[in-house]
Amino acid sequence: MSVSRQIKALTPPDIAAQKGQAPIVCLTAYTTPMAQQLDEHCDVVLVGDSVGMVMHGLPSTLEVTLDMMVMHGKAVRRGLQKALLVVDMPFGSYEESPQQAFKNAAHLMRETGCAAVKLEGGVHMAGTIEFLVARGIPVMAHIGLTPQGVNGFGGYKVQGRGAAADKLRADAKAVAAAGAFAVVLEKVPAELAEDITKAISIPSIGIGASAACDGQILVVDDMLGIFTQFKPKFVKRYAQLGELTGDAVKAYAEEVRTRAFPEPQHTFKS
């Protein structure tokens, strides 16, 4: 009689303990099949609010709702056994007050089964992070280019150059002191990202930052070449699935129009 081995899911403390150890592998996912593909290889799977642009065709993340995050969070949860599931808190769901943040974070965790939430902001969000952590909600922070603040930045620009570097250092130290178990550094100069990584006690997760970060994250549809509307400099395409999909659909359309499909092996006899 065979005994199935139960897989232990990673936890926020497990990820925090990887500081300075083997690099932490993180990718996004929005669906069950993709989550199943990522689970074996990733330490963290994030349901990012990038889902609005990648899956729903929205112009930015600002129109993403809590209900959308719940729907995709549930789907990804069904596909994971090992990886830590983190779900983004969408724009407008946490900025008003720590109490608002707790209510919506608790809702996300209860509905999706995620183990942690991610929110954007540094010094000005430290109080909210501390409030959530004290009430049992693990938080991954996100500083540097924070897409929900794109209008204030005037576009998707590199953050932390020149005199602005000190602000990012302060943001990183503030979220670490507030109890975040990790922090995403997005579109930050490599030297600054390396300095921040050395200066804080929690793992840094780079996206357009430095290979010296404690881990890396990309939008999976970007790195697979599925989402091709634009390609940030920091994205490496590990496949061209968008092109393969186009070729496959073209071949299907031609076979349907010439009645080459379906063939006898694809049909049923009476």
Rank of each mutant, 00 (worst) to 15 (best):
E40P: 14
E40Q: 12
E40D: 06
H41K: 05
H41Q: 05
C42N: 06
C42S: 13
D43I: 11
V44F: 04
V45N: 15
V45H: 15
L46E: 11
V47C: 15
V47W: 15
V47K: 14
V47F: 15
S50D: 09
M53F: 08
M53G: 12
M53Y: 06
M53E: 13
V54T: 13
V54L: 12
V54I: 14
V54C: 09
M55L: 12
M55Y: 04
H56V: 09
H56P: 12
G57C: 10
G57V: 05
G57F: 13
L58C: 13
L58M: 15
P59T: 10
P59A: 09
P59W: 08
T61P: 15
T61F: 10
T61Y: 08
L62N: 12
L62D: 11
E63A: 15
V64D: 05
V64I: 12
V64K: 08
V64H: 08
T65E: 05
T65N: 10
T65Q: 09
T65H: 07
L66H: 14
D67F: 07
M68S: 10
M69K: 14
M69I: 08
M69R: 10
V70W: 10
V70Q: 11
M71L: 10
H72P: 14
H72L: 12
H72I: 04
K74S: 06
A75P: 06
A75N: 11
R77L: 07
R77H: 12
R78T: 04
G79D: 05
G79I: 06
G79T: 09
L80F: 14
L80P: 15
L80S: 07
Q81M: 04
Q81G: 09
K82L: 03
K82N: 03
K82R: 15
A83Q: 03
A83F: 03
A83K: 03
V86Y: 02
V86K: 03
V86E: 02
V86P: 04
V87G: 05
M89R: 06
M89H: 11
P90S: 01
P90L: 00
F91S: 01
F91E: 00
S93P: 04
S93I: 01
Y94V: 03
Y94P: 14
Y94R: 01
Y94T: 03
E95P: 15
E95Y: 02
E95M: 07
E96W: 02
P98D: 00
P98R: 00
Q99S: 01
Q99W: 00
A101R: 02
A101Q: 01
F102V: 00
F102Y: 13
K103H: 09
K103E: 06
K103P: 03
K103Y: 02
K103C: 06
N104Y: 08
N104G: 07
A105F: 01
A106M: 07
H107P: 01
H107K: 06
L108M: 07
M109A: 01
R110H: 06
R110Q: 09
R110P: 01
E111K: 12
E111L: 01
E111S: 04
E111R: 07
T112Q: 11
T112E: 05
T112I: 04
G113Y: 03
A115I: 00
A115Y: 00
